[in-house]
Design a protein around this nucleic acid. Structure first.
Lengths: 116, 116
DNA sequence: CACGGATATATCGGTGACAAGAGTATTCAG
DNA sequence: CTGAATACTCTTGTCACCGATATATCCGTG
């Protein structure tokens, strides 16, 4: 039923943003844009949808609401499960990166007598 | 209209598999399973669908058909564009990994006086 | 004051990559 | 004969995400 065992980039970056600090939805948007060097600009629908989903999955949790200058700010933090999931996802991606670099570097396996 | 700028894991692993050698659909399935240490088992629908899509996008190209023992084997190879796309995707993921590790490692930004 | 832009959240429709699985066909081992 | 492995085709369903729209407040500028 799960569409993909692996997390997608927006979700990964949202968890990454929350790994270092407590943030509200809009703060997540700005942090992700900053973290990615401006490459990834998340839409509101993506951020708030992901936050709801991640909360339901127990990876993030509400961390207080602040009324600042008439604006409501709903803060979120990473749970222990969220931290673990992000760490696991990071190592999985690191392994894929190593693997891809290896295969991109070599001229090919046949020429090197690799055993698959 | 594009659901995600970033490539998903199955697609990434299929390109990685093809980066080092010419393969047919079933060979891609086996190679991806091996590359991922058995973690990722691609379904036929995923592999052949992805191959068609990647061919339409110019990232992979048919590389001959072989009739071996009555079975047809349709081989694919990575195009120059495909190689470039995989390399770019790899570096993008590597950047995300560095970023996530950094933010997971520290106790938090407030305590360290970071400026966001 | 009027205006635009930034801040901040909510929600809806659409789409595409993928999972799941059934179906077809051949080869080979037990 | 049965079952596993090889090799591909097709269909159905789903979920994350994009794009867009809506709402509301605050701030700076002319």
């Amino acid at each position: 039923m799960v569409p993909d065992g692996a997390m997608r980039e927006p979700t990964f970056l949202i968890l990454t943003a929350l790994a270092a600090e407590r943030l509200h939805g809009y703060g997540v948007m700005l942090t992700v844009e900053s973290l990615s060097g401006g490459r990834v600009r998340l839409r509101p629908g993506t951020v708030y949808g992901a936050l709801d989903r991640l909360e339901a999955d127990g990876l993030v949790a509400p961390d207080g609401e602040a009324l600042e200058q008439g604006r409501v700010r709903r803060y979120y933090r990473l749970t222990a499960d969220g931290k673990r999931a992000l760490a696991a996802e990071t190592e999985r991606m690191a392994a894929n990166v190593r693997c891809a670099r290896e295969r991109l570097a070599g001229p090919g396996p046949r020429e090197q007598g690799w055993v698959l």
